[in-house]
Design a protein around this nucleic acid. Structure first.
Lengths: 201, 201
DNA sequence: AAAATGACTATATGACTAATTCGGTCATAA
DNA sequence: TTATGACCGAATTAGTCATATAGTCATTTT
């Protein structure tokens, strides 16, 4: 009996989260109403407030989940036996490509661009921070292993993310999109080998 | 007599351009009124329309001038005797640093960010295009000379500009700004030498 | 008794309208 | 011939007010 009630309770919380995620993804942060979420989740509005302090915390919990799942996704792209650069390319491309088609993330980008919603901005920044931290961690490992030269991990991670964002998102605003392989080659060309000719061999 | 009239005429045109540039710089494109420009230039509003077809063309001519002067500025940073990378760093840093403190450019960035004015966006894009073209030209020369490896000049120019924008503008949104020398070293480290260790010597 | 509900409230939003401002014109003045 | 500024329709803004929204809480349901 107690168990059944708990399950119902957790299930309800989950249904609210799912309804909210769908609604935030469809309409953005601002245009999502608590009435809407309640209706979608099949609960009364007041019920939402027994699980979440307010709209903002409901939203933040959804972003927490998104960040966690994206980090997992990125970590899964790391294969012990591969080189740092192969791993990093796979992880970065995966995560950014996923992001490109992820409804909630897309909607939040649009919302921030068009009406500057602060909560949307903050969520996107948290996502970016997670990615930078992720790169940073793996950079540090690679530096320690001597796979790459000594660099500031934080700054370098920031640069790498900017480079990927430029190659994946910015470039295709005006030109033909680059394929996964092309981006890997460019990453290799620019950041790994450098533009100055190397001695042969 | 004829000469005097011509001079007055050219001077008037110039005064209008200067007044407009000041006003666009102070208030942005949208908030600048033709009445305001006329008053600042000390002419009647109708007079502006004897020199410029409309507000948009007046604005575009100012941007033409800005682009030309920035290109000149960049070209002046190129010294025949220096290496490609020294030259490019000097030119890019100069032009972006100038841009950072240039009232009109700043105002247009702000205006586009805050209210999305299309003319402001277009002007900033023209500026960016000029910079990419500039880098592209000098990249091609460096490739021909064998100073750097064979790369697609357009894509590489785009990447270089993005890298500089990230290092100069984006980085300092959240961290301590980087000095001119630091940026030169980073440019060298990331793009010139690459992160993969090179054989000593 | 505990959990869920939805009517309720204070505030925020945005639709609507009136008034103003603006870009551009043109008859008139210099 | 060139310059002017009053003028015009279109666009923008300010002000108002009805509606919608986030969050609460007395009541109902389980």
């Amino acid at each position: 009996m107690v168990k059944k009630e708990e399950e119902t309770c957790i299930d309800k919380r989950q249904r609210i989260l799912e309804a909210a995620e769908r609604s935030f993804g469809l309409f953005g942060y601002k245009a999502t109403t608590m009435d809407q979420v309640a209706k979608l989740a099949g609960v009364a509005k007041g019920t939402i407030y027994t699980f979440f302090k307010n709209k903002e915390e409901l939203f933040n919990e959804i972003i927490d989940g998104l960040i966690t799942s994206m980090r997992k996704r990125a970590e899964m792209a790391i294969h012990e036996e591969d080189s740092f650069f192969d791993n990093l390319h796979r992880a970065l491309y995966d995560i950014l490509d996923f992001r490109r088609e992820h409804q909630l993330t897309l909607k939040l980008s649009q919302e921030f661009r068009e009406i500057g919603t602060n909560n949307a901005k903050a969520a996107l920044e948290r996502l970016e921070n997670m990615i930078v931290k992720f790169i940073e961690r793996h950079l540090q490992i690679a530096v320690d292993k001597g796979e790459i030269v000594q660099v500031d991990p934080h700054l370098t991670a920031f640069i790498m993310l900017q480079l990927y964002i430029a190659l994946i998102y910015k470039w295709e605003e005006r030109e033909q999109p680059l394929s996964r392989e092309e981006i890997a080659q460019l990453f290799q060309r620019y950041l790994v080998l450098g533009l100055e000719p190397r001695a042969a061999g």
